[in-house]
Design a protein around this nucleic acid. Sequence first.
DNA 1: GTGAAAGCGCTAACAT
DNA 2: ATGTTAGCGCTTTCAC
Lengths: 354, 354
Amino acid sequence: MTTMKQIAQAAGVSVSSVSLVLNGHDAGRIKPAVAERIRQTARQMGYQPNALARSLRTNKTRMIGFISVQVATTPYAGGMIQGAQDALSELGYMLLTVSGDDATAIESEIRALKRYGVDGFLYSAMSNRVVDIPDSLAEFPLVLVDATDETNRFPSVEPDELRIGYDATTRLVEAGCERIAYIGCTEPMIAQTGRLSGYRQALEDAGRTPNERLICDVLNNGPALQAVEHLFDAEQPDGFFCFNDARAWYVYESAARRGLTIGHDLSVVGVDNHRVFAETLDPELTTIELPHYEMGYWAANKLVSQIEKRPINEDAWPHTTAMMPPLNTPSPVRIHCTLIEKGSVATRRASHSK
Amino acid sequence: MTTMKQIAQAAGVSVSSVSLVLNGHDAGRIKPAVAERIRQTARQMGYQPNALARSLRTNKTRMIGFISVQVATTPYAGGMIQGAQDALSELGYMLLTVSGDDATAIESEIRALKRYGVDGFLYSAMSNRVVDIPDSLAEFPLVLVDATDETNRFPSVEPDELRIGYDATTRLVEAGCERIAYIGCTEPMIAQTGRLSGYRQALEDAGRTPNERLICDVLNNGPALQAVEHLFDAEQPDGFFCFNDARAWYVYESAARRGLTIGHDLSVVGVDNHRVFAETLDPELTTIELPHYEMGYWAANKLVSQIEKRPINEDAWPHTTAMMPPLNTPSPVRIHCTLIEKGSVATRRASHSK
DNA sequence: GTGAAAGCGCTAACAT
DNA sequence: ATGTTAGCGCTTTCAC
């Protein structure tokens, strides 16, 4: 690794001149000819600044800590990390990822990140839920990703869960479904409550009365399939809104066992947590993809703009097919996510007695 | 952040004494009483060493760069990163994750990692394939994760693909399947070739002749389903070994459309790339889980032992249900992975005309 | 315009 | 047994 000192020697100038030039602080301070010579030699010698030395001096590391709280060991954060990374890479920052299962583990990871002097933190749980931010983070720049702060002290980027539920259900209504079931999850989290509310509200706005027997909250396990099968037989739904892809699969399997085809005999709209649908499931299944990547991307942009005390760059959104957020307002702010849909919903009334 | 200087003042000693004590280099150099006083004040003042300053001095950062090459933007590396992170956290290291789609992007990320002074690199593609390691990494400690080095210069940790294919196929043979199909992928990669070889070898060892018409290599897209459906009708297989869960889903769907049930009418063994099976698919489907977490964990241990020029700690394997590797041999080394299986395979002869 | 010098927080060789 | 000193590579103030 060549240093500024070496460049200074090679160019016959002092280190301070080199520093000034290489950092672009040479306007009217260093003679243009000399500046150019310095830049030349730096390039020739393949100079790369030592980020650590710089950080030690400036007290800024351009490193961001990404904390993800796993409930078990399932790594859900993939897309979000990816998005955060891409954004930070564009902004000249580095991402340090860290994770832990319980508060103690997280605390210890936070200490480690602090030793390395990160400029700020991104914080995510798995699935949008209310999280309790450790006090040890309180005085740092911090943005939550797909999570909600209990105390409302910090900005967050999350999907509009209510709207997810509302849009999905409306879609099923418009497709002509009359008995629309909700297959949700039993854990009390933002995503569950929000989507369920959206489901109810959409039905009411369509002039219907939500039928509690069509609401089926299940865990991620074996008995869930039986519960869904029971719902199938007892209530004969012709449309399903599924909390996530695991739930959608229960519907898929139950339908298959009854000789029914999704998109033909019945309609399903599911939320895709794992990005599996796109690769595997039937195109007739309508899915709402959680924009994990975009959440990470935006959260990172938000965090850095906060760190650098400048307004967020609204042009810096990623060029995905996903969506454009209606950009808003002072923090704490939740970015409302318009969501993409894939595939189509059966538009005629479904029948179980086909 | 309190510094050594502050501690020195508070304890009435010099910084060097503080440094010596806090780094455990005070054996017979600092009076035990003084040492204790120093440790006390350090604790009281909540001292956390400044990792950057230390690194600047020692030329070691205890940071590792994790490079993952995505082919598109699918974040496959989740489990591996998780494993690497956990291992490194135990070893007192920090992980810097980075990714890119093409060689240029990767090169630029590598430069960034070097600026931050990482001590070594982990390198992964998505799925076990032959990768071309950039020269810019050649002089650094480097371990490949779920990838194979073309030039054989670097150690790697990968699953034993041949054995995966062999074991899966053997399982189907033992379950009484007579017409065992292989649903693979068209890309030429280690995983594909290895598993296919294993499939062939298992059939031969069972005294059978592989039937080329039962081998179906498809892409991850729509036409794949048709190809599988065609295979279903033309060859009437009673057992399937699937390259990954996307392929398994094609089989699943084709079977459902024909009113056949996996585990009852036919047998399937699939390799689980996304950790989806375990959560969603039928327990009658036998899956071989790729030990992504373990690969990351082991690779990180291997890398650090290399960096610290000490033998790898063989007790440091993660306590998962997965497997114990027969620990071996000088680098470059491939860790042979014994794999877990989940669920059961139909043990009686399957029939399409049920 | 340019260079000398101080210092960020830490380690380690060298004095005492 | 403890303190003094000299940097690691860089930024930045202050002289010239």
